[in-house]
Write a protein that binds this DNA or RNA. Structure first.
Length: 949
RNA sequence: AGGACUAUAGCUCAGUUGGUUAGAGCGCUACCUUGACAUGGUAGAGGUCGGCAGUUCGAAUCUGCCUAGUCCUACCA
């Protein structure tokens, strides 16, 4: 093996080997275990969040595969409707100066498929680099043939069950993308705006309580007044009591509209009068409906003002309740221009009362970034209420558990107040809605046009045209767990792997995806008793990966880290280019470049996939965002190097030697018995932590065991034996333990660090008597309590105590590490003496001693001392030690003991403590006090003795 | 407005049902190239666990209030 660990030398070749040999496929035997990858955007690329979640899924998958489960990690990508369409539209505009309308629907879709073919491999290549052990043979895409069938089936059946309906409703309209979007795709932002106060003259010479012949309404969106159908006041508001049932004459359009009373109105806000615009405001829609009003739409799909208003009843039929003419002056004006004009005109008319500054929330489209307009359009909706009921129940009764649990609250509060889901999108890229219309507007929902004709008995000569709209991307993603397994066919894969075991995803898509997946799955998937099947048993919710300052990573902030750059490294210049090239806002480039040069003055070094993964795991504490720290990554790269070198040491001492693999007689040293015992304990700990999704704790346990126990102590303790002993049985025992424990460590580590564990395992396994083509399919280590040797563990703890005590004196007294020193022990119990007798050579070797003796009762020479339990460790001071330094050191120790004694005395002096605390706690404290007291006394004597010289 | 989460060493974070002398990594200090590893070794410094009350024999841990921050949902024109 090379002296230094080079991840690039091993990682890619191992992945290819694994994939070629089909190790990622389900084994076909064992209890099924399955995970569905959250499908990334097919044309996207992997970011740190993906790397994080995918690493977790891979660790769980590899762990269960090694435990013998029939394990499937299902892979696939999402067509990502709006996102993908926008990318291709931008590209088209930039390269050919054309819009999608110039091309037409079919040609444009061809362009997108081309783009998918061209860029679609990026994400899957990146997944391979991460070591993702997914089943590539069954990769799926949310718009592949099978998924198309699943989507149609679901749509048609939901329609037949009256859970999908079409209607003219107020929706969130994106005037830039020209599509409806769901509530979830709207981001409400705090903005400073204005509250305009308009006078609406009263009709029929009515007047207010204070004698005015007008009332004042306040609005943040003046242009919508063109669509006002009423004014509302609170029923108990004395100021306007006599006006209820009267009318106002709407200025500019001269529309006579009623004054109605409604509890919804807040008397304290503004003037207590609210203009009602049912076609342009969600609250007003409800209000208008309650008061038998109509809907007056005044806006086009571009959010410009119409020439003629469109007036509807709430059932969608046309209404002639009002004159539909709108003032010519506004026709075609953009909504914001119209706003200015309306305000100016009110001022002109002397009807502008005042303008207040006002803080408000403005809805923006999360993709387009423009202000969303509530607009009356024909859309398809999913009736979410009935679907939500079983989905809520499944989480309440624990069939689905969120990890961490607090996300269940979030889920419940959204689900219990769920609104119908607008699923139609006025886009081209997506699943086209399986509905057909005849010339009269009749709607026919079926899987195909032919089926529609049969089902609804439509003659062949009646022209049908399919709905132009497509479905929300999340509609198809909601079918992911069963759609990927072949549904609506009852495939073996579906029967074997559904329900899946765990979904690993971010909290940001609990509503978008997780909740909808639960609803859809439980409606369509039933078990043998016809009970709804859940899509997964656990939802492991990860935090977000942020940058080193806790800021969200984003292109516009220029703080995005590419996981592949962590793995392969990148030069500073390339990193700057990557962050500043192809920007939507080029003016930020300079700042980003500067910041990047400051943070990564040397670029980024290569750290390898294993180190990246291990870093992600150790940061993966539940329910918390992660602030990325390059130093952690470096630390775990060093950890890989540590393992590498430990393996080199083991190989150096075992290759070509007799390692006792054929059960020749062996004798195990104390160190052997100890590390074997500890291995059992660590195996139990890690297994438990993995089962509880605590990858952070598991990786920490592994790290501690490998570095602080196996390397720091076991390998060091093996050195004196390998160097000195002539005992062939003992040598065999040590060699056997060296390789066997390392071999087990590699299997323990494999789910975390697949590459380095495989690379080393290939060399170690034969020496440990293991055979097999890959570590991937070896058994995950299981602890054997029978191998735990309590005596050995106690002895090594003692041994470490003595060695650390001597090193401590050495360090504090500034004794050169090169200098071998004499050490005496005294005042020990019989147990100390036994341990001393059995382990002299270990101590002498690890503490670099010239001599080590048991003093008995003889008077010791003047020495530096340290206590290990009751036993004193003495380093004779002659020629070695600075008296003042020793006094200072002992005084520090004494202070500590004195404080401890005081604390314990106070505690035990408290009658209530002695009376109330459990007996074992009291006994423990008493023992501690005894130790501390005797330590205090010894230290005091020793200080006195040194001083007296 | 409602709700959730977070606050522990200079930095990034663990701390499982209340009982440790409160831990890790990085950083810092001193010493050390000893044949696995300087991507290393040995020793060390560093914390009134955000604040205030309370429950308890005992609180980083439980309760209440407060402060600061993050996020989610809803929204008054």
């Amino acid at each position: 093996m090379d002296k230094t660990y080079q991840p690039s030398d091993i990682e890619q070749t191992w992945y290819q080997t694994w994939e070629q040999h089909g190790y990622f496929k389900p084994s076909g035997t064992g209890k099924p275990y399955s995970i569905m990858i959250p499908p990334p955007n097919v044309t996207g690329s992997l970011h740190m969040g993906h790397a994080f979640q995918d690493s977790i899924m891979d660790a769980l998958t590899r762990y269960h595969r090694m435990k013998g489960n029939n394990t499937l990690w299902q892979v696939g990508t999402d067509h990502a409707g709006i996102a993908t369409q926008m990318v291709v539209e931008r590209k088209l505009a930039a390269e050919e100066g054309k819009s999608r309308h110039d091309l037409g629907r079919d040609a444009f879709l061809d362009k997108i498929w081309e783009w998918k073919a061209h860029s679609g491999g990026t994400i899957t290549r990146q997944l391979r680099r991460l070591g993702a052990s997914v089943d590539w043979d069954h990769e799926r895409f949310t718009m592949d043939e099978g998924f198309y069938k699943a989507v149609q089936e679901v749509f048609v059946r939901l329609y037949e069950d009256d859970l999908i309906y079409r209607g003219k409703r107020l929706v969130n309209w994106d005037p830039k993308l020209h599509t409806a979007i769901s509530d979830l795709e709207v981001e409400n932002k705090d903005k400073q705006g204005h509250l305009w106060h308009f006078r609406y003259p009263l009709a029929d010479n009515a007047s207010t309580a204070s004698g005015d012949n007008f009332i004042v309404v306040a609005t943040t969106r003046p242009e919508t007044m063109l669509g006002d159908t009423a004014v509302a006041v609170h029923p108990d508001d004395e100021r306007y009591q006599q006006l209820i049932g009267q009318h106002v004459l709407l200025p500019i359009v001269n529309r006579r509209i009623p004054i109605v009373a409604d509890d919804y109105v807040d008397r304290e806000f503004g003037t207590g009068c609210v203009k009602i615009t049912p076609a342009h405001d969600f609250n007003d829609y409800e209000l208008g409906k309650r008061h038998g009003s109509v809907l007056i739409n005044i806006m086009s799909k571009d959010a410009t003002i119409l020439e003629q208003a469109q007036i509807f009843n709430f059932d969608g039929s046309a209404s002639s309740a009002f004159d539909s003419n709108l003032p010519e002056a506004y026709a075609g004006l953009d909504r914001f221009a119209a706003r200015k004009q309306i305000v100016a005109d009110f001022e002109q008319l002397g009807l502008l009362e005042k303008i207040d500054d006002h803080a408000l929330k403005v809805p923006y489209g999360d993709r387009s970034g423009v202000v969303i307009e509530p607009l009356l359009t024909d859309q398809w909706f999913v009736r979410a209420g009935p679907l939500a009921e079983p989905a809520i129940e499944a989480v309440e009764n624990g069939d689905i558990q969120f990890v961490p649990k607090q996300y269940e609250n979030m889920y419940f509060s959204w689900m219990r107040d769920i609104q119908d889901w607008c699923i139609s999108r006025q886009l081209w890229w997506g699943h086209r809605i399986p509905a057909w219309y005849d010339a009269q507007g009749g709607v026919y929902v079926a899987r195909t046009e032919a089926e529609a004709r049969t089902k609804y008995a439509i003659a062949d000569d009646v022209a049908l045209s399919q709905d132009d709209d497509v479905l929300d991307t999340w509609f198809s993603s909601a079918l992911w767990t069963f759609g990927t397994l072949g549904w609506p066919e009852q495939t073996d894969r579906l029967k074997t792997f559904h329900p899946t075991d765990v979904l690993v995803t971010g909290f940001d898509i609990i509503f978008f995806w997780v909740a909808r997946m639960i609803m859809m799955t439980m409606h369509f998937m039933k078990d043998e008793n016809n009970k709804p099947q859940v899509p997964f048993k656990y939802v492991y919710v990860t935090g977000l990966i942020r940058d080193e300052h806790g800021d969200k990573m984003s292109k516009s902030k220029g703080n995005v880290l590419d996981p592949l750059d962590m793995i392969d490294g990148i030069s500073l210049e390339d990193l700057v280019e990557k962050r500043t090239g192809n920007m939507m806002q080029p003016q930020l480039a300079e700042k980003i470049a500067k910041r990047t040069r400051k943070t990564f003055s040397e670029g980024i070094a290569a750290h390898g996939t294993d180190a990246l993964r291990f870093t992600l795991f150790s940061l993966a504490s539940t329910g918390r965002d992660i602030n990325w720290d390059m130093k952690r990554l470096e630390g775990y790269r060093n950890f890989c190097n540590k393992i590498w070198n430990a393996a080199r040491y083991v190989l150096m001492n075992t290759e070509g030697e007799d390692c006792g693999q054929n059960d020749e007689s062996v004798r195990l040293s104390l160190a052997d018995r100890w590390i074997i015992s500890r291995l059992q304990q660590v195996e139990a700990t890690i297994t438990k932590q993995l089962d509880e999704f605590r990858l952070d704790l598991a990786s920490q346990s592994l790290y501690d065991f490998i570095w602080n126990e196996y390397c720091d102590w076991y390998l060091e303790l093996s050195k004196p034996i390998l160097a000195d002993t002539q005992d062939s049985e003992l040598l065999r025992g040590t060699r056997r333990t060296l390789v066997r424990v390392l071999e087990a460590i590699l299997r323990l580590a494999h789910p975390f660090m697949p590459f380095i564990s495989e690379e080393i395992w290939q060399r170690i396994a034969p020496l440990a008597g293991k055979s097999g083509a890959t570590i991937m399919t070896q058994e995950y280590p299981t602890p054997d309590a029978g191998k735990i040797d309590a005596v050995a563990m106690g002895d090594v703890e003692w041994l470490r105590g003595v060695i650390v005590a001597i090193r401590n004196i050495r360090g504090e007294m500034d004794i050169s590490p090169a200098r071998a020193i004499p050490v005496l022990l005294r005042h020990g119990h019989a147990e100390d003496k036994r341990r001393f007798d059995e382990n002299r050579s270990y101590i002498a070797s690890l503490a670099k001693l010239e001599s080590l003796d048991w003093l008995g009762d003889a008077e010791p020479p003047l020495s530096a001392t340290q206590l290990v339990g009751d036993m004193e460790v003495l380093v004779p001071m002659a020629g070695l030690i600075d008296v003042d330094a020793e006094v200072a050191r002992l005084t520090k120790e004494l202070d500590k003991s004195a404080k401890e004694v005081a604390r314990l005395e106070a505690k035990l002096g408290n009658e209530k403590f002695v009376k109330n605390a459990p007996a074992d706690v009291v006994t423990k404290e008493q023992a501690k006090l005894k130790d501390a007291t005797s330590a205090q006394q010894r230290l005091a004597e020793q200080i006195e003795k040194i001083r007296s010289l």
